[in-house]
C-alpha cells in the first residue's frame, strides 16, 4: 500500500473517471489479491466496483453491464481460469458488451496465459507483478476504450 500511496502524487488524475469491476469467480475464499488491486486502483483515481467472492461468470457480466464499467479484472486462484474467464467473455458478448475489456490475475501457468489471450483476455498478471504495471495497463486500456466510445 505505501508503495502505491507515494505513487499517486506523480500520477495525474484521469480526465474522466474510469470505472472498473474487480471480482472473484470460483470457489476459493481468498480475496486478498483482489482487494490489494482494488485499493491500488482507487489510489490511482479509479472508481472500483468491488463484487467480492464467489461470483459466477454470468453475474460478473451482468454487473459489469449495469455498472457501465470500462473493464473487468478477475482474480482467480482455484485453477479454474481456463473455463471461468472465457465464460465471462462469452457472457459479456451475449449482452452486447464485448467492448468491455477483461484482464485476469492469479497463479496461471505460461501455457494457459497464451490460450487465455487468444480467447480475448487482454492481460494476465501473475503474483509478484508490481501493482504499478497493473495500474498502467488498466489506465491505457480505459483510455483506449474512452476514445472508441
Amino acid at each position: 500500500m505505501s508503495e502505491t500511496q507515494t505513487k499517486q502524487s506523480d500520477a495525474s488524475p484521469p480526465e474522466t473517471t474510469h470505472r472498473v469491476l474487480i471480482g472473484k469467480v470460483g470457489l476459493d475464499g481468498h480475496d486478498r489479491g483482489a482487494k490489494v488491486i482494488a485499493r491500488a486502483l482507487r489510489d490511482a483515481g479509479f472508481e472500483v466496483i468491488y463484487t467480492g467472492l464467489h461470483q459466477t461468470p454470468e453475474a460478473v457480466a451482468a454487473t459489469a453491464v449495469q455498472e457501465d464499467v470500462d473493464g473487468v479484472g478477475i482474480s482467480i486462484l482455484s485453477g479454474a481460469h481456463n473455463t471461468l474467464v472465457p465464460e465471462i467473455i462469452e457472457a459479456l458478448e451475449e449482452r452486447g458488451a464485448d467492448d468491455i475489456f477483461v484482464f485476469a490475475g492469479g497463479i496461471i501457468p505460461e501455457d494457459d496465459i497464451a490460450t487465455l489471450k487468444d480467447q480475448g483476455v487482454r492481460a494476465v498478471f501473475t503474483p509478484g507483478t508490481p501493482t504499478r504495471e497493473v495500474i498502467d495497463f488498466v489506465r491505457d486500456a480505459c483510455r483506449e476504450q474512452a476514445d472508441n466510445r
Partner: peptide
C-alpha cells in the same frame, strides 16, 4: 477518496444475489 478521486464501491457485495434478476437494477456511484 479526497486524495486520489478514486473510490471503492463495495455495496454490491451484499446484493450479489440479485445480479441476474432483470427486475433489479443496481448502480454504484461515487
Amino acid at each position: 477518496s479526497p486524495f486520489s478521486g478514486g473510490a471503492i464501491l463495495g455495496d454490491r457485495v451484499r446484493m450479489n444475489r440479485h445480479a441476474l434478476d432483470d427486475g433489479v437494477f443496481i448502480r454504484s456511484v461515487a
